[in-house]
Design a protein around this nucleic acid. Structure first.
Lengths: 176, 176
DNA sequence: CCACCCATGTAACTAGTTACATGATTTC
DNA sequence: GAAATCATGTAACTAGTTACATGGGTGG
């Protein structure tokens, strides 16, 4: 279970409120670890209980706004977890189930849904490539930037694979 | 939620017991939709309650062994679900979180874990390629076989991407 | 003054995991 | 006759989703 560690990482990068975290999880870090704001608030409460983070009311902000910071115990936990070996996420892709159902009980008319997916993956890919242009087109990258670039490249390669595969799937579905 | 539909598909392909399904979910269909035997038994009970499947005691089998079959209502549900539009699974990859943590709080020593992962992805890729050789090297493929091949190719392309990316990640981690 | 965004949460539910339990049959 | 595998499940827990609730601040 990595949500607390994703949160710790995000807060280490930049201390902020639960709300800010939720928004960050709608982009950057959320591209590879999704969470809703309800999960985030619940997890933050647990982490504070365990002494991994502390929160302080923000002066001059909106009423009730809190800012979270990572405590030494939180950093230690992050280090401990990082080198721990773990199993890769299990794939879950309903399009594969649908294809298999189509193979089993005749043509079901999956073309529209595949077209929708193709558009989505193309858009996602474009988003990643825009970020690449914006953030990583400089000549020399620091270690930190190289690692962040690596993460982005995983996303790009994944979406490229998806786009290509979806096109192939559409071709097969159309010709048969 | 697709577990019941993955089960329906698997039972349509070949009626069988919960135990058989659990084993099938450890290979073929489980490569893109994982489930434990506890989940499977629970879901089968629900599906029987809803009239999607029926079970009969197997004569001559082990005591208590039941065989599930898909009822017309189950097929109808599968058809309904197949053309319904759905959101692609959200990615969740803890290696990305670890890389980002490494970028944020200094080198943590991720090389070993990446090496382990590389081996796993290489093995998985090999497994898929063996299946490709065994099942899809004939010249003419039926519509059904083409669709099943498509699913396998998604797995191959995914693992190839992973292997390549993991090698790149290792190179970056080693040089910095 | 109304709509929208900021900012926090609670409650109820669904899905998935881990641990435990039981007994029959086959294989060595 | 012991160990492995077949075959079923229950119970307890953890994680994730969906729906609801509340109130302040900002911009038109």
């Amino acid at each position: 279970m990595s949500l607390p560690h994703a949160l710790l990482t995000s807060i280490v990068e930049k201390p902020c409120s639960g709300y800010d975290l939720a928004r960050r999880f709608d982009k950057s870090i959320g591209y590879f670890w999704h969470a809703t704001h309800q999960q985030i608030y619940r997890e933050l409460a647990r982490m504070e209980e365990q002494g991994w983070v502390s929160s302080t009311e923000v002066e001059g902000g909106r009423a009730g706004k809190r800012k979270f910071e990572v405590l030494p115990a939180g950093r230690a936990e992050l280090r401990r977890w990082a080198v721990e070996s773990s199993a890769p996420m299990k794939l879950r892709d309903d399009m594969m189930v649908k294809l298999r159902a189509d193979a089993a009980i005749g043509p079901l008319g999956l073309i529209e849904e595949f077209e929708r997916r193709l558009t989505m993956h193309e858009q996602e890919l474009q988003t990643y490539k825009d970020i690449e242009q914006r953030d990583f087109s400089g000549a020399e990258l620091s270690r930190e930037a190289q690692l962040r670039y690596l993460i982005l490249k995983a996303g790009i390669s994944f979406e490229e694979g998806r786009v290509q595969w979806t096109r192939e799937a559409l071709a097969t579905l159309r010709q048969t």
